[in-house]
Write a protein that binds this DNA or RNA. Structure first.
Length: 278
DNA sequence: GCCCAGGTATAAA
DNA sequence: TTTATACATGGG
């Protein structure tokens, strides 16, 4: 991805294939906020930046060329041809076509695997505004002070804590789940980096050994934390999604399959505008 | 107040 | 194997 350097920072041409609001506000990440000045602010790799789209450009304020190439281009997956994927999806199924057209600028972030795992543990039976709040308090309480903002606390930082020390985070029953994840990751019992290359079923099985990580959170981590796109074979989830729409399903079945099918379809569907409201 | 949220563990059917 | 409930908290 070619970027141009200006006094403001790194700039790339704006494109319908890269929409900040669609990408950052859709529930795949929880540490970005839209500031009143129109900039999106987030913390990635210990660096806080402001990004905005303006005058046909996406501007990464204060970011140098080297940092852009090493941090931001990979984070936003800028070298991947999403348009080609959308074309393929559109050919495959009319629902996906509609969906792809609905959110054409969404991208699959390459997030830190540990941060993603924690975030999706927190996300269970929860809503996005509160998830963001809990994640923010987790960073503020246990992250390193990076000068006006905090890092996401590593597994080794959380692993020694006691459950009651999570009280200020107000994450409720999820504290014991976060602790289980932290301890397994810190001890190496679950090796997130290794799971990037492991056979997909092996990776899924390893993740679900964590107390509080079930099918859904594991899928989230595979897709959003480990960038394992193959965790979501489209045909399978499409069929499940369709079956969910049929009448006569129990709440259990609805919850189980609707959630997971939605997980896959999320990038390309969720054809309701409310999802992307700031 | 009330409903419910990008679920999971657990007990009970 | 499948289904119902509790779980902590707070947004809308």
């Amino acid at each position: 991805m070619d970027c141009r350097m200006t006094a403001r920072g790194a700039e790339i041409p704006a494109s319908p294939e890269f929409d900040l609001a669609q990408t950052l506000n859709c529930g795949q990440c929880f540490r970005w906020e839209l500031l009143p000045d129109g900039c999106w602010q987030g913390v990635v790799s210990g660096r806080r930046v402001k990004i905005r789209e303006q005058d046909g450009k996406v501007i990464f304020f204060g970011v140098g060329g080297r940092e852009f190439e090493r941090v931001w281009a990979p984070y936003f997956d800028l070298d991947f041809d999403y348009a080609a994927v959308r074309r393929a999806l559109s050919r495959k199924d009319p629902v996906l076509r509609r969906a792809a057209e609905f959110a054409p600028g969404i991208r699959l972030l390459r997030q830190d695997p540990w941060e993603a795992l924690c975030s999706f543990i927190i996300s269970q039976n929860n809503n996005i505004p509160r998830i963001k709040g809990i994640v923010a308090r987790l960073c503020e309480q246990f992250g390193d002070d990076l000068g006006g903002y905090s890092s996401f606390p590593g597994a080794e930082r959380l692993a020694p804590l006691r459950e009651q020390e999570f009280a200020p985070i107000r994450c409720g029953f999820r504290a014991k789940y976060i602790l289980s994840a932290a301890r397994k990751v810190a001890s190496g019992e679950v090796n997130l980096e290794a799971l990037r290359a492991a056979p997909i079923e092996e990776a899924r099985a390893s993740l679900t050994t964590i107390y509080g990580v079930g099918e859904k959170v594991a899928e989230c981590e595979l897709l959003y934390g480990l960038h394992r796109l193959e965790a979501f074979p489209m045909d399978v989830w499409m069929k499940r999604a369709m079956s969910v729409l049929l009448p006569g399903r129990t709440p259990q079945q609805l919850g189980k399959y609707a959630g997971i099918a939605q997980q896959y379809l999320f990038h390309y569907s969720r054809c309701n505008a409310g999802l992307f409201s700031a």
